[in-house]
Deep mutational scan, measured.
Amino acid sequence: GSMEQGFLPKGWEVRHAPNGRPFFIDHNTKTTTWEDPRLKIPA
């Protein structure tokens, strides 16, 4: 929902695949990933 959306880094969006699995869109680089960007520790 909109709650989890608010925690994503700037430029990211979460969508759900037809099977219900969430995936993440990085509008900054125009890419998608199954990995939650929030789980990655910034270098």
Rank of each mutant, 00 (worst) to 15 (best):
H16F: 15
G1V: 13
E4K: 10
E35R: 09
R15K: 11
G1W: 07
T33A: 03
T33E: 02
P18D: 07
P37S: 01
S2T: 13
M3I: 13
D36F: 00
T33V: 06
W34Q: 04
K10H: 11
D36R: 00
E4L: 12
G20P: 00
G6K: 09
P42N: 12
V14Q: 09
E35H: 14
A17F: 05
P37D: 03
R21N: 08
T29E: 05
I41G: 12
H16K: 08
P18F: 06
T33Q: 09
N19I: 00
P18I: 08
G1D: 13
F24G: 01
P37E: 01
G11S: 02
K40Y: 11
A17D: 15
P42Q: 12
D26I: 01
E35I: 13
H16Y: 15
N28A: 07
P22D: 12
F7G: 15
F24N: 01
T33H: 09
G11K: 01
P22C: 15
P42A: 13
V14F: 01
N19E: 02
L39S: 10
G6E: 09
A43K: 11
P22S: 07
G20T: 15
R38E: 03
L39W: 10
K40M: 11
S2N: 13
L39M: 11
P9V: 03
L39F: 09
E35T: 08
K10C: 15
P9I: 04
L39Y: 09
E4G: 13
I41E: 10
I41S: 12
S2E: 11
F23D: 07
A17G: 09
S2L: 12
P18A: 11
T31L: 07
F24V: 01
T31D: 05
M3P: 12
R15S: 07
T33I: 05
G6D: 09
K10T: 10
M3G: 13
A43E: 11
W12S: 02
R15Y: 06
F24L: 02
H27E: 06
E4D: 13
G1Y: 08
L39H: 09
I41Q: 13
L39G: 11
T29W: 02
H16R: 11
G6Q: 10
K30M: 09
H27I: 08
L8R: 01
L39R: 07
R21H: 09
V14A: 05
P9A: 03
G6I: 09
A17W: 05
T29M: 05
E35N: 09
T29V: 02
M3W: 13
L8Y: 03
R15G: 08
P18M: 07
K30V: 04
W12K: 02
W12H: 03
K40P: 13
T31E: 06
P42G: 11
K40S: 14
V14M: 15
R21K: 11
R15L: 08
D26E: 02
R21L: 09
F23C: 15
N28C: 15
P18R: 10
L8S: 01
A43C: 15
K10F: 10
I41C: 15
F7M: 14
A17E: 06
P37K: 01
F23Y: 15
T33P: 01
R38D: 03
G6V: 10
F24E: 05
A43M: 12
I41H: 13
F7P: 15
P37G: 02
G1M: 12
T31S: 08
L8A: 02
T32I: 15
R21T: 10
K10V: 10
V14G: 03
H16D: 06
P37T: 01
P22A: 09
R38N: 05
Q5I: 14
S2Y: 12
R38I: 03
M3F: 14
T31I: 08
E13Q: 03
R15Q: 08
W12P: 03
M3Y: 11
I25Y: 15
Q5N: 14
W34Y: 08
H16S: 08
H27Q: 06
W12Q: 03
E4F: 11
A43I: 12
K40H: 14
D36S: 00
V14R: 05
T31V: 07
E35S: 06
E4Y: 09
R15V: 09
F7V: 14
E35P: 02
E35L: 14
G20Q: 03
A43D: 11
R38W: 06
G11L: 00
G1F: 10
F7S: 15
H27W: 14
N28E: 07
F23N: 07
I25A: 03
I41T: 12
R21W: 08
F24C: 14
D26Y: 03
F23L: 11
G11H: 03
F23E: 09
P37A: 01
T29F: 03
H16W: 15
K10S: 14
G1H: 11
N19G: 08
T32G: 06
A17R: 04
V14I: 13
T32F: 12
G11F: 03
V14Y: 01
F24S: 00
G11T: 00
L39K: 10
Q5E: 14
S2M: 11
G20Y: 01
G11E: 04
V14N: 01
D26G: 00
L8V: 02
H16M: 15
K10G: 09
E35W: 13
W34E: 05
P18G: 07
D36L: 00
I25T: 06
P9E: 06
N28K: 06
I41K: 11
A43P: 13
F7Q: 15
S2D: 12
N28G: 04
R21Y: 08
D26T: 00
T32K: 11
G20D: 06
G6H: 12
G6P: 09
K10M: 14
P22L: 12
W12F: 04
P9D: 05
P37L: 02
G11A: 00
G20L: 02
H27S: 06
T31N: 06
V14P: 02
D26P: 00
A17H: 08
T29K: 06
P9F: 03
T31M: 08
K30I: 04
T32V: 15
R38V: 04
S2R: 13
D26M: 01
L8P: 03
L39P: 08
R15E: 05
R38F: 04
E4W: 12
